[in-house]
C-alpha cells in the first residue's frame, strides 16, 4: 500500500510543487500560445519539469534522456520545421468553422481526466511488486538495472525499435524526395525553365513525373480543382532558390 499519509519533507514537497507547476503551466502554455515558437518553448518547459519529476523518483537516467532526446532533439526538430515553413507568426484566428468544437473539446477532455481520477481515487497502483527486476537497489545503479532489463526481458522490443527507426528514415526520404511543388505564377518569377518545357524538361526527368501523359492528372483530384489553372509545377531546387523568399520570416 502506498504510504498515503506519510510525512513529507519540506524540500521534497517544494521540489514537487515547483516541478508540477512547471509541467502544468508549460502544458497550458503550449495549448494557449498562438505563436508556435512560444508554444515549442513552453513544451521545453514541460519536458524539463517532467525530467525533474523523474529525478525525484530516482529515474536518473531517464531524466537525462528526457532532456537530451526530447528537449535536445525533438523540440529542436519542431523549431526547425517551424522556421523552415515560416509559420512562426501567430496563428490566424478567423472565424472558427466549428463553433462548438472548442467547447465540446474542453468538456470531453475534462470528462476523460475526471473519469480517470474518479476511477483511481482510492488506489492507483495495485499490482504486485517487481516482476521484471527491481527499479532501485542499494548496490546497483539505475542505469545498470535499466540496461539489464532492456537486454533480457525486453530484448525483442529493443531490437524491433530498429524497424521503427528505419521507417522514420525511409519515410522522411520518401516524403521529402522527388518533390513537385506547386507555386503561384503571380509570385516571384523564377525565370527558369519549367519542367513541362519540352526543351528543358529532359534534365528534370528523374525528379519529376517520368510519364508525360499522366501530367494532366495533377488535378485528377476533383476536390481541390480550385484555382489550379494558374499554377504550374517546378522542380524542387528552383523553388528553394527563388520562391521561398516570398514568405521568409
Amino acid at each position: 500500500m502506498i504510504p498515503m499519509l506519510a510525512k513529507v519533507s519540506v524540500p521534497d514537497a517544494t521540489m514537487f510543487v515547483v516541478s508540477a507547476a512547471i509541467v502544468l503551466l508549460g502544458a497550458i502554455g503550449v495549448v494557449l500560445n498562438r505563436n508556435p515558437v512560444r508554444g515549442a518553448l513552453c513544451l521545453v518547459a514541460t519536458l524539463f519539469g517532467v525530467a525533474l519529476l523523474f529525478l525525484e523518483q530516482r529515474a536518473d537516467f531517464l531524466a537525462a534522456v528526457q532532456i537530451i532526446v526530447y528537449g535536445g532533439a525533438i523540440v529542436v526538430l519542431f523549431l526547425f520545421v517551424i522556421m523552415l515553413l515560416g509559420v512562426d507568426k501567430s496563428e490566424r484566428l478567423g472565424r472558427d468553422p466549428l463553433s462548438w468544437q472548442r467547447f465540446l473539446g474542453i468538456v470531453a477532455g475534462c470528462l476523460v481526466v475526471g473519469a480517470i481520477l474518479v476511477l483511481a481515487h482510492i488506489a492507483w497502483a495495485t499490482g504486485t511488486k517487481s516482476v521484471s527486476g527491481v527499479a532501485s537497489s542499494k548496490t546497483v545503479p539505475n542505469i545498470n538495472l535499466l540496461a539489464t532489463s532492456l537486454f533480457t526481458t525486453y530484448l525483442l522490443a529493443f531490437e524491433v525499435t530498429s524497424a521503427l527507426l528505419v521507417i522514420a528514415v525511409v519515410g522522411a526520404v520518401l516524403l521529402a524526395r522527388r518533390r513537385t511543388v506547386v507555386i503561384d505564377l503571380d509570385g516571384p518569377s523564377t525565370g527558369l525553365p519549367r519542367d513541362d518545357d519540352p526543351e528543358h524538361g529532359g534534365g528534370y526527368q528523374d525528379q519529376t513525373n517520368p510519364d508525360p501523359d499522366s501530367r494532366g492528372d495533377l488535378d485528377g483530384d476533383n476536390g481541390d480543382r480550385g484555382d489550379r489553372d494558374d499554377l504550374v509545377q517546378v522542380p524542387e531546387g528552383i523553388f528553394e532558390e527563388h520562391a521561398s523568399g516570398g514568405h521568409g520570416s
Binding site: 519515410g171 520518401l174 516524403l175 513537385t180 495533377l218 483530384d221 481541390d224
Partner: peptide, 15 residues
C-alpha cells in the same frame, strides 16, 4: 507509422 507514410506516398495528390 509506416502506414502514415504509405498513405501520403502519392505526392502529386493533395488528397
Amino acid at each position: 507509422i509506416a502506414l502514415y507514410v504509405l498513405a501520403g506516398s502519392d505526392l502529386r495528390k493533395n488528397k
